[in-house]
Simulated assay, not measured.
Amino acid sequence: MAHHGWGGRPPASDAEARQRIVDATARCIDRHGVVKTTLSDVAHELGVTRQTVYRHFDRISDIVGEVAAQGAESFVDRLVDHLQGIGDPAGAVVEGMMFCLRTIPTEPRLSLLLQLRDSAAFGRGATAADAIAYGAQMLHRFPVDWASAGVGEDDLNGLAEIIMRLLTSLLEHPSEPPHDEAEIRALLNRWLAPALRRTGPRPERGCSSQLAPAGRWHGTTS
């Protein structure tokens, strides 16, 4: 690891160097935007050469992806905290999606996930196996007893994929004119929530689930 540059404070480890590169990239993105941020900008911000940055990251998109990932970790913690007290699966999923729709566009680091075409969380990468597995891990953290609700491990993967597909569509391709929050919540309650309101035990594979009444278009989760 080179000890030149770094503002006169060379990192003590590779891990520290990587984190300082990520932090510098975040500052560059704040100033220039993700599209105009280059690896040269990051190197200049740190006072190092491009080759020094290349020792830790192969591409600028890899660094930007790490900036987004770190923002996502904090976001998930806040999401789970927001859902505390909502033990109903349908209510938790709908409220969680509404939280995502409100928060992601206003968070610079989270918004990067929508701009990165090879992102593993949203965009074209939203249906990748690792992204779905990550989504299922997020659902595990919801204050919901999934097993008692008849939702198994395989179901959580499927639910995570549906949620990510819906979020991607709603965030990247809003309706014209745009739906307000109440309309989107009603849409989710009408068409998504009923799938999580089984009235009987979990059915065998190949059998239809029993669903609670869907309610009206403008119904609530209660």
Rank of each mutant, 00 (worst) to 15 (best):
I21E: 01
R202Y: 00
D130L: 11
T199K: 00
I104A: 06
V42A: 03
G91A: 15
F99T: 09
H140Q: 12
G7K: 04
V76N: 09
M98L: 15
H218P: 00
E176N: 14
G158R: 12
R109A: 14
E16Q: 13
G135M: 05
P143Q: 09
Y54V: 13
D88G: 04
V53S: 05
D62R: 01
S74K: 13
E95I: 03
R124Q: 10
C207D: 11
T49H: 01
R55P: 00
E95T: 15
S119I: 00
C100W: 12
P178K: 06
I163V: 15
S13M: 08
I162W: 08
D14Q: 15
A160G: 05
R198V: 10
E161S: 13
D130P: 02
M98Q: 09
H32T: 08
D77C: 03
H140F: 09
H218K: 12
A24P: 00
A193P: 01
E153S: 11
D81S: 15
S119W: 01
P213Q: 04
A17L: 11
A69C: 08
V35I: 10
G87T: 12
D155T: 00
M1E: 09
L46K: 01
E161G: 12
C100G: 06
V94T: 08
T127V: 12
T52V: 14
D77P: 01
I86F: 11
G200R: 12
S169L: 13
V144T: 03
R55K: 10
I104W: 06
G33E: 06
L112Y: 03
P174T: 12
D62I: 02
T168S: 13
L170D: 09
G65K: 01
P177T: 11
V76R: 11
T103P: 03
G5E: 08
E73A: 13
L110D: 05
A131I: 04
L166N: 11
R9T: 14
R141F: 06
E172M: 15
M98T: 08
F122L: 15
V42N: 02
Q137V: 11
L156G: 03
I163W: 05
T49W: 00
W6Y: 07
I184H: 09
A2G: 14
S40D: 14
Q51V: 13
L192Q: 01
D180P: 04
L113N: 13
G96R: 04
V93W: 03
H3R: 15
D154M: 08
G87W: 01
L110K: 06
R117E: 14
I104R: 07
H4F: 11
V67I: 12
Q70E: 14
D118C: 00
H179R: 14
H140K: 11
T49S: 15
T38R: 02
M138K: 08
A26M: 05
M97S: 04
A120P: 02
Q70K: 13
V35T: 13
I162L: 15
E153W: 05
T49E: 07
G65Q: 03
I21C: 01
L139K: 00
L46V: 02
I60S: 01
D154G: 06
Q51E: 13
I60A: 00
W146F: 04
S148V: 02
A147T: 12
P143E: 10
